[in-house]
Amino acid sequence: MYTQALNTAETDDRGLEDAAKAAQFQARIDAEERIESNDWMPAAYRKTLTRQISQHAHSEVVGMLPEGNWITRAPTLRRKAALLAKVQDECGHGLYLYAAAETLGASREELVDAMLAGKAKYSSIFNYPTLTWADIGTIGWLVDGAAIMNQIPLCRCSYGPYARAMIRVCKEESFHQRQGYEIMLTLCRGSDEQKAMAQDALNRWWWPVLMMFGPPDAASQHSDTSTKWKIKRFSNDELRQKFVDATVPQAQYLGLTIPDPGMTQDADGHWRYSEIDWAEFKQVLAGNGPCNRDRIAARRKAHAEGAWVREAAAAYAAKRAQRQTAQAAE
């Protein structure tokens, strides 16, 4: 999902650790206890979570870019206010998540620098462009819809700070999806051109959204340990299927066609989708999606242009602290 591209190979250093402690830790996980930041945890658990939570945070932050593109061009003031509030929420989500990642020992600055240096990944979905206003509707409806599908089980993740951040995020995310669907509904009830615009956006976003859930279970290298540690509660394919089953009737209500001619419904009601183009997914992850370079360039620019603000705030705080010490000495 937002952490579909877990970066580096898992290093298994659990063997070096106290076996008794590791067993005790697993017993706590199995008993559905929450792990807190001061608790003992295996180094690999800490590493996996730091990577997952920080990638999730980067995704929220980079996720502001495709939507921010339309704030100044929203069709009405109501839509503009809603989109602005949504983008602010994404920023807030990024901040909750950085704070959760920091409880594991890394600093936010370190994590952000890794992203700016291109060393940390973010969700592949944000490397696609938002060409029309219908893309904003589609992102809210499908991208946020897929995110909710993934984040609800994360509210029960074994790591307390991450689970608590997810609860806050999920509460806010529901507004995002509804505002997106409302945009789609308005377009679909509008002129032929507006409806065609909605269909075009769905055509372009459908497959990248399905890729958000990550590689198929057979090819996913991180699932086993994450499942054992109860970081992950459902597999990629299970979540993807849930999402498809929930989305197809919503598309039908809009009168839109899912761009998958091979899609069929099983006797048990599940919608079976065609083979996903994993080569495209790999290309986007490797940095060759339509907007990868733009996104990183925009983040670097924003970070560099904010440097004077950080410096001024730090200088002001230092001056005040110095004055206080001087006054105390008098």
């Binding site: 807030g92 909750y96 608590r164 951040a165 705080a317």
Partner: peptide, 23 residues
Amino acid sequence: VGSLHASDATMALQAARDIYTRR
């Protein structure tokens, strides 16, 4: 409710308002 980064107490309060009380 959580944590945040700020260079001083005034900025911390403002950031807390923006991050944790948007609704």
